[in-house]
Design a protein around this nucleic acid. Structure first.
Lengths: 122, 122
DNA sequence: CTGTATCCTTCTAGATACTG
DNA sequence: CAGTATCTAGAAGGATACAG
């Protein structure tokens, strides 16, 4: 059992600390993003979307999210086996955070592209 | 020079990945939170607010945020020396993300406290 | 006060092989 | 397909000492 997650303690009750406690895993917010967008709900789909995340890491991060009650795993005992992941009601409450990150990321990608254009055309 | 930051590559242009690129450092969002709230702008103040972040880590994270153009450092050559940190205009654009995290953290602290009460009174 | 440099331990995470 | 177990290299991060 790999159980040694970092405990944040910037200050008693710091809200950012609390949020990090749940979503700060290296790939957690990306997983949540895909689950919210529903463009990937199976292990394999997620793995394909997140090319630089190994299957081991993906499994670990999914496990932690499940332990924290953020997602649920549904297993279908068919051949070949199928699993999908879904946000719990509790996990759904994280949507605004993930969407804020999405919005900013899109903005950032845009300004980065523009800066690049300027550099190329300079 | 410590320069080996993880490069996220879930998918080309994934907005969450882009956001993580800037704020995923272990203490960065906490630093940004304090700068947004303006309850800590000096190195020592930040250090006091973030008890479990060593001075070394604090300095490293501040340096990366500065390199990324998110914050600026102002140094006053007085005795004793004084420094303060401020969000750049670019850094300001991250405010909605940090505030979404704050809001969720407060919600989470609340439900955790309630759950605790139930456990104690059970 | 605000950092930087170095050393050293702990943890992270990839590679690989294996299971239901 | 959907994972788990083990092994290992390399990165993260604390402690300490020193500098402007």
């Amino acid at each position: 059992m790999e159980r040694n997650r970092h405990i944040y303690n910037c200050q008693e009750g710091c809200p950012i600390e609390s949020t990090l406690q749940i979503i700060s895993g290296k790939w957690k917010s990306v997983i949540l993003y895909h689950l919210i967008k529903q463009d990937a709900t199976h292990f394999g789909e997620l793995s394909r979307q997140m090319k630089d995340c190994s299957r081991r890491m993906l499994a670990l991060q999914l496990k932690e999210l499940e332990d924290d009650g953020v997602i649920v795993k549904h297993q279908y005992p068919v051949i070949p086996p199928k699993t999908d992941y879904e946000l719990t009601d509790f996990g759904q409450t994280l949507t605004p955070v993930i969407l804020a990150m999405e919005k900013w990321g899109n903005y950032y990608n845009k300004v980065s592209a523009e800066k690049n254009d300027l550099t190329i055309n300079a």
